[in-house]
Amino acid sequence: MNYNEMQKQLKCRLNNDHRYVHSLSVSNTAVKLAKRFHISEEKAKVAGLLHDCAREIPTGSLIDEARKHHIKIYTIDEYQPILLHAPLGAAIAHEKYGITDSEILSAIALHTIGKAEMTDLDKIIYLSDMVEPHRDYDGIDEFRSFMAVNDLNTIMITAFDKSISFIIAKKQMIHPQTILARNFLLEQQKKYGK
């Protein structure tokens, strides 16, 4: 299936025009970041487009769907099942859109919580979802400016900091994988000065 076919199918499957526009915007943002950080623009384009393809699944059904797809369910997922749309998105991208590239599937699966040892594509999709032009939250303009002048790992640490602060302010649980992802990057910076 080519990109245009994926686009048409996604538009039909998503039950919300806003989500479709968001998906296109994440795809476009991912291409720009991929170009800047010298990774595959085509992979970024596809991963960005399909990152929310599981948002068609009602939140109340996400845990059952995750079980059907043998996706690991953490305790936090029981309380915040919306987090499962990312790994489920990877499964759906494979099943319904024919994606077999493990890098694209990983980027889709990790776009909400991250993990230690993320690839550059994983990071770009995480960031693109966070800063695409339709996103509007306190501090986004400053974060976009910060992104323009820093390296990918420094940007990711700050992105995790922002995400964790937001979660704490909402008095929600922080996914353990997000903590591991942030700690891994901090450790890399201390070890290698990156």
Rank of each mutant, 00 (worst) to 15 (best):
L88M: 07
R67F: 03
T100G: 14
A47F: 13
L14F: 01
L84W: 00
N15G: 11
P81R: 01
H22C: 12
Y97K: 01
E42M: 12
H38K: 15
D64F: 13
L84D: 02
Y20L: 14
K43S: 04
L88D: 03
E41G: 05
N16V: 01
I82P: 02
L83H: 03
V46A: 05
K8N: 10
E56K: 07
H38V: 11
G60R: 06
K68Q: 11
G89M: 02
N28V: 09
P81G: 10
I63T: 09
I63F: 10
L62E: 05
D64K: 14
L33C: 05
D64W: 05
A34F: 05
H51V: 02
L49M: 05
R55K: 14
T59K: 11
D101I: 07
A44N: 09
R67D: 06
P58A: 12
K35Y: 02
H94M: 13
Q80N: 14
G60Q: 10
S27F: 03
I76H: 05
I92D: 08
D17P: 00
A66F: 03
N28Y: 12
L24Q: 12
K35T: 07
S102E: 12
S40W: 12
Y74P: 05
D17W: 01
I99P: 06
K32V: 00
L14D: 08
A93P: 01
K11E: 11
H70P: 12
L62P: 08
G89N: 05
K8P: 09
K8V: 10
V21A: 00
D64A: 14
K32T: 09
E103A: 13
S102T: 15
T59L: 15
C53P: 10
Y97G: 06
R36E: 02
T75I: 13
L83P: 04
H85E: 04
D77V: 08
I82G: 00
I73Q: 14
E65D: 07
R67Y: 08
V21T: 12
F37L: 01
T29P: 13
K35A: 05
K68N: 15
I39C: 02
K68R: 09
A47L: 07
H69L: 12
H18K: 10
R55W: 11
L84F: 13
H94L: 04
V21W: 01
G48S: 02
S27A: 14
K32N: 03
K35S: 00
A30W: 00
